[in-house]
Amino acid sequence: MANGSSRPLSPHLQVYRFQWTMALSITHRITGVGLVLGTLLLTWWLVAAAAGPEAFAKAQKFIGSGMGLLLLFGWTWALFYHLGNGIRHLVWDAGYALDLKNAELGAYIVAGASLGLTILAWIVGLAVW
């Protein structure tokens, strides 16, 4: 083995046949990293509120801008996706749904729920804005 020990090496990514479960797996990571970036906006929002009316108005103006809304929409979906898939991970950790059929079923539920909840949150959000 090329790693200089007798440990097995994972084969290269290209030899795997594409499956939806692996798309969800990497998306969990990507949304996680994306949400960490989103915490910068959360921090700005809270610190601006603590700093005073002018700073807060500036933050609220950015959030309400086209760019801000686009980012917020992306983060809404990323949050619901990471939340849903995180619950899926917790179910696995508890020892359930580890077979292929249920892993795929969970994938469809998480993908569907994340989109549904994002749309729902935005319908409610725009209604009360």
């Binding site: 009316p53 807060f56 809404t76 939340l83 995180g86 949150a121």
Partner: peptide
Amino acid sequence: AIALVPLTIWFVIAVISHLGADH
């Protein structure tokens, strides 16, 4: 992760309730 399940749901509702709020 377990703690964040209810906290995240509360946070989303809290943010939606204060959209467009002034200082």
